[in-house]
Design a protein around this nucleic acid. Structure first.
Lengths: 353, 353
DNA sequence: ATGAAAGCGCTAACAT
DNA sequence: ATGTTAGCGCTTTCAT
């Protein structure tokens, strides 16, 4: 199947087959300089007279020349590509991060390569460097993977890497103050007069190594303690709408139903809202619900929540890898973004008893 | 900045600097064969004795060798990468499509390269082939871009391409029966007894070239006509929550408020729901709302809607490009997936007057 | 400031 | 069935 039999000699300019892309030689010929000069001129490298540079750019434009990325990478060892790995691509969180990363890669002229690492096998293969993925990118952004310090250490030596959502010692990570987020929710609910809470948190199977839930819980409980209230239960909402729905159904039908729910994600809170509706509970009159994220739908539902700037997290993450790339050294550091309580109409004082 | 001065001769095996990746030569030496044999053996090509193949695989494993994709691409002209282009990455629709594509690329061993084409400039640069993007992929999946027949024709000669959401003559596209979707919504609402409708559709700035809204509208109006009802207005909801909110606010405050809303996306319907709540209108007692998509949140909100299998669309799209790639010819065809009415609690007979 | 030339690591003819 | 060899299109020394 010859479909593209290269190996044809010379054949100077213009299209002669399917892949008639102009090469750097064509540009050199057109501009009357050597191909080395073309390379320098086009990449904005020094030691090229302005006049010559203009002429080269001119020639390149007229030929519609764009350097072949693969050849460039092979020769230079750089790909101008950042890789994103995440166990799950469909959550609001992940898509916000992706958008944030793209925001900055776009202007930096980098490509974004995406890989879902849904299975433990893939995860292992990543850590063992057995994924084609690693060779195609100059840096990695990891979202929700919770590789832990060892995991990151494993990848770092080869590629600059930044972790979003998790903070890891000795590496580059972007996150929020989860404990503070938990505190904000608790303070809000306590001030409203609630005393009977339920935390809907737990762990989606994909993010079971995440320290995030316990941090949010710690913050929440700390505030309760300050108010002289006992610790409360945390049930598993699997970080999904259905999980939140099920958890709420079970809890509210139980013997001692809480008057306030703190969900570790807005998506779980949506499920809670649905359950409340089906149970005939009015929100917030009978039940208060506070979420976490500030998912775009939260506003439409009047959900009180703890907002985290996810797209911003993605942007910063991209900036950090790019910076690490330019420095050429393994950088470490942790960026913490603020969270903020957004009070809407899903939280109010508890019903009188 | 020497950071990685290659050009060092020989240096046989093992790491000697940052990028001490083993090459095909290392494997050849280790297995005691030529590098051509290694290439064949590892790629599963014929004409390699099983015994030799095993030995090569053995050697590759022990050296942790993985072929350099860039070198391979440069030499072969193939990248094992599919590119996704979309004007916007954060919508539910797009992230579902992305996930669907990843589902199949993952098992096919292909990478997914993502590029947001938010500005008209980028769009133009794409069509002019001035984006690095095109050279890095073997095929393209376009989502919500609405390039039209000319746009696709422009890209096709170079790369197999499939369009998701839009059906284009003479090319490969995956979509749904939008008109039927419109019909389903209208039939449902008419059967409930509604006579005063409003369509919330219009066009997000990014998808202004989309034929989708008019198809859904046509289906909707056709049914109204069959019921002897006059055509109804379509207002712009920008395909966003806020847009749906604003459109609903305006409409319901107007002189002749409708009793039923048909929103061309669930996200707009969420905005409508919010507006209704703020206006003190009960859904569905005072106002019926039907959306389109079956966004995951729709179930939680009890939104009646027209479901389309978006992730499935993505999967099929990926399969199609891959198939086109294998065939090596430009294929055309249009896959139409069924839509389905999902009745929940946001639609009911109109209030008595 | 510019050019010549040696690879980068692989694939695909073409031999054998 | 296996090996030899010529590139793929670029970057980067090294010379000039």
């Amino acid at each position: 199947m010859p479909e593209r039999s290269s190996r044809q000699r010379g054949s100077s300019s213009s299209a002669s087959g399917r892949a008639g892309r102009p090469t750097i030689d064509d540009v050199a010929r057109e501009a009357g300089v050597s191909l080395a000069t073309v390379s320098r001129a086009l990449r904005g490298l020094p030691h090229v007279r302005q006049e010559v540079r203009d002429r080269v750019i001119q020639a390149a434009e007229s030929l519609r020349y764009v350097a072949d990325t693969n050849a460039a990478r092979l020769a230079s060892g750089r790909a101008r590509t950042i890789g994103l790995i995440s166990p799950i691509l469909t959550t609001w969180y992940t898509s916000q991060v992706i958008a944030g990363i793209e925001d900055v890669l776009q202007v930096a002229g980098y490509d974004l390569l995406i890989s879902a690492l849904s299975s433990p096998q893939n995860r292992r293969r990543l850590l063992e460097g057995r994924l084609t993925f690693q060779q195609r990118v100059d840096g990695i952004v990891s979202v929700d993977l919770f590789l832990g310090a060892e995991g990151v250490a494993r990848l770092q030596p080869d590629l600059p890497m930044v972790t979003i959502g998790e903070s890891i010692e000795g590496s580059l990570s972007i996150g929020i103050d989860n404990e503070h987020g938990g505190r904000l929710a608790a303070e809000h609910l306590c001030e409203l007069g609630h005393r009977d809470f339920l935390i809907i948190g737990g762990a989606a199977p994909e993010i079971q190594f995440s320290p995030v839930p316990q941090l949010r819980k710690a913050g929440f409980l700390a505030v309760l303690a300050e108010h002289g209230l006992p610790a409360v239960a945390e049930v598993d909402g699997e970080f999904s709408i259905e999980g939140g729905y099920r958890a709420t159904m079970t809890a509210m039908r139980g013997s001692n139903p809480p008057t306030a729910l703190f969900c570790f994600s807005d998506e779980m809170a949506f499920g809670s809202l649905q359950a409340a509706r089906e149970l005939g509970l009015r929100v917030p009159a009978d039940l208060s619900i506070v979420g976490f994220d500030d998912h775009e739908v939260a506003a439409a539902l009047g959900l009180s929540t703890v907002r985290q700037p996810v797209r911003e997290l993605g942007r910063r993450g991209a900036h950090r890898v790019l910076a690490a790339l330019e420095q050429g050294t393994i950088v470490s550091g942790h960026d913490v973004f603020p969270v903020e309580l957004v009070v809407r109409s899903s939280s109010a004082p508890p019903p009188l008893r």
